[in-house]
Design a binder for these strands. Structure first.
Lengths: 159, 159
DNA sequence: AATTATGTTTCACAATGCGAAATATATGGA
DNA sequence: TCCATATATTTCGCATTGTGAAACATAATT
């Protein structure tokens, strides 16, 4: 039992994944950072009172990994570390001016390119794409869009 | 100027990416391989007369990286290296029986989960999802088969 | 005070990924 | 034939990622 429509959709989905895959990678390289560094930098910039633990949890990396990456971001003067006064166990991470400048230079490519192309389509087509994509997301069992807007894989983990 | 439809579609796309994200990663770990190793193993299994150069090109990794990963796959007895008789510069890679067994044990999660859910939808909805996803892939500039993805970040000038 | 929980870092380790140089083989003239 | 150049792979040194286990330091609980 095999559906041609299912196969075609899978092919299309793979094209989508392929197109978005490595987006962060090229982006990071363009800014002189590694993909992970850019991810962490973004995460630090995103919220208030961000600690290594929070970043680790959001990106699903180990604490040890975050420590190492933050080390490099601090060395690059893109981030500062400050021990919290309320809870001296915590370390507060903040993006410096230079760090924010980097982020500005590294816009979310997915968003930028997508919006430009999308705007040129007729309304009915936009609606169709929206409906199809939403349904696809449901199908894949993706939870609500609560958090991290990330497009990385890992590798492999990529995949 | 911002389109609500575009934003909604982007949110849906992010949900899709999120759902598929880490798929290979989980998969690889489950088979005792790293994501990269699984990717390379699959690539070797995929074609005829596969050489390190071909793999490097397809996965967009450097030759040096492929050599290192193939080293490990060979050490694990999942792959064999043979010098080509026609062109002794080339090295032919082949998946061993054990290697193929690993691949069988590592079904494509995306495919399995997707097909099951997809089959339960009414035909018109399948068609809608297909159309939307294909259009989305076009939009993102994904090539037909294996071409280079085009979400390119133009070089950013930095002092 | 003693114990337990929480947050971060340190350490040793395996693996990625790269560019540059080294090596080996093919191929196309002069 | 001989030689230059192109192609295919490997070796080497390097920075980085990512992990778990253990070490620390500081809360919070009892």
């Amino acid at each position: 039992m095999e559906s041609e429509i299912a196969n075609a959709t899978l092919r299309a989905l793979r094209r989508v994944l392929r197109a978005t895959d490595g987006g962060t990678r090229r982006l990071a390289v363009a800014t002189g950072l590694t993909p992970s560094q850019l991810l962490v930098l973004r995460e630090i910039d995103a919220g208030e009172d961000v600690t290594p633990g929070v970043v680790a949890q959001r990106l699903k990396f180990s604490h040890a990994t975050i420590t190492a990456i933050v080390d490099r971001l601090v060395a690059l003067d893109l981030v500062t570390r400050t021990r919290s006064a309320q809870d001296k166990r915590k370390v507060l991470l903040e993006v410096t001016g230079a760090g924010r400048r980097r982020l500005v230079d590294a816009p979310d490519m997915l968003q930028v390119e997508f919006e430009a192309a999308f705007a040129m389509l007729p309304g009915w087509e936009q609606a169709m794409i929206l409906a199809g994509t939403e349904r696809l997301a449901d199908l894949l069992g993706a939870g609500d869009d609560d958090a991290a807007p990330l497009l990385d894989a890992g590798a492999i983990d990529r995949d």
